[in-house]
Amino acid sequence: MSSAQTADTMTATTSLSPSPSRRILLVDDDSITLDLLSHIFHHAGFATSKAASAEAALSSVSEQEPDLALLDISMPGMSGLELAKRLQVETTVPFMFLTSNNDIKLVREATESGAVGFLVKPFEHTQIVPAVEAALARADEIRQLRRTEANLTAALAAGRETSMAVGLLMAKLQTDRNTAFEVLRDYARSNRCKLNEVAQELLAAEERISTFKTMVANVRTKR
């Protein structure tokens, strides 16, 4: 293997397409494979970055996260599987694997690591772009699910806080739930605040009052 194949290199290739390109990070210690894949993706309208090692890939990602990383599994030093684990922990970059190994166990391990797809060498050139497009679509679905899950979690948390604040008002004002909710809502509207923000403030104030009550009780005990 030549020194060009083992050196840590990163070369940006910009698509000729006038529209914004999706960027793919290609990671392989074989410079011939890197150049071939870069050429194929370039003409398919993608922008690419190349890295000849996992370490070079991490450096590239720290500067600009790609839309997808295509990782060779077997590389000297840090393997593609190890790099994938780093990407999962440290970034939000989706990844797929490139391997010349047909071993079922290795493919299963790659899939379980969170890969959105994989290509097996020797690959048909006509299969590369469709496989990457499918991986990108899968990555987009995962991102959307994560956003939806985050929004749902926030909504549920806000709902719990509002419900607790309504219960607190019911107890303090000796009123029914509907009236307590209307009071909370009207206060939020008149002060141009979100309902859950008012609920948070109310719960925080009650917690402070409880703390002061405890402190007062402690002072009286010491007398």
Rank of each mutant, 00 (worst) to 15 (best):
E141Q: 13
M164L: 14
I142D: 11
L168S: 10
M75G: 01
G77W: 10
G114M: 09
A134G: 04
E90K: 14
A154M: 10
A137Q: 11
V132N: 07
V166S: 00
L168T: 11
K105Y: 06
L98H: 08
P76I: 13
Q127H: 00
T179M: 09
T126D: 12
L71R: 10
R86A: 03
I128P: 02
S113A: 15
L119I: 15
T162D: 07
A134E: 07
L169Q: 03
P130C: 01
S100M: 10
N178Q: 15
K172A: 07
R138Q: 15
L106C: 00
R86F: 07
M78W: 01
L152W: 14
G114C: 06
F95G: 00
A158M: 01
L87N: 01
A171E: 08
A131T: 11
G77S: 03
M164I: 11
R108M: 14
A139W: 09
I73N: 03
G117V: 05
L98R: 04
Q144C: 02
D103A: 05
G159R: 08
R108V: 13
A135D: 00
Q174R: 14
E109P: 01
G167F: 05
L173E: 07
K121E: 03
T175A: 03
T179I: 07
M164H: 15
R147H: 13
M170R: 14
L169C: 02
E112V: 11
R143Q: 10
R108E: 12
E182P: 00
A137C: 04
A180T: 04
P66H: 02
T126L: 11
V107L: 15
L87H: 02
I142F: 13
G117N: 06
Q174N: 11
L68D: 04
L83S: 00
L156H: 11
L83R: 03
T91P: 00
D176T: 00
L87C: 00
N101R: 15
E112W: 15
S113D: 08
L145V: 06
V166K: 07
L87E: 02
V116M: 03
M78L: 02
V166R: 09
N102D: 11
G77A: 05
P122F: 09
R143F: 05
E112G: 02
K85W: 10
K172C: 02
A69W: 08
N178H: 14
R143T: 06
E141N: 13
L71H: 10
P130D: 00
A158G: 02
D72P: 02
G114I: 10
G159P: 00
L68H: 05
K105F: 04
I128N: 02
T148H: 07
Q174E: 14
E90V: 10
L98T: 05
R177S: 06
F95K: 05
Q174V: 08
A150M: 11
N178V: 12
R160M: 09
P76C: 08
R146W: 05
M170L: 07
E141R: 15
G167N: 12
R160Q: 11
A165Y: 12
E112D: 14
Q144A: 03
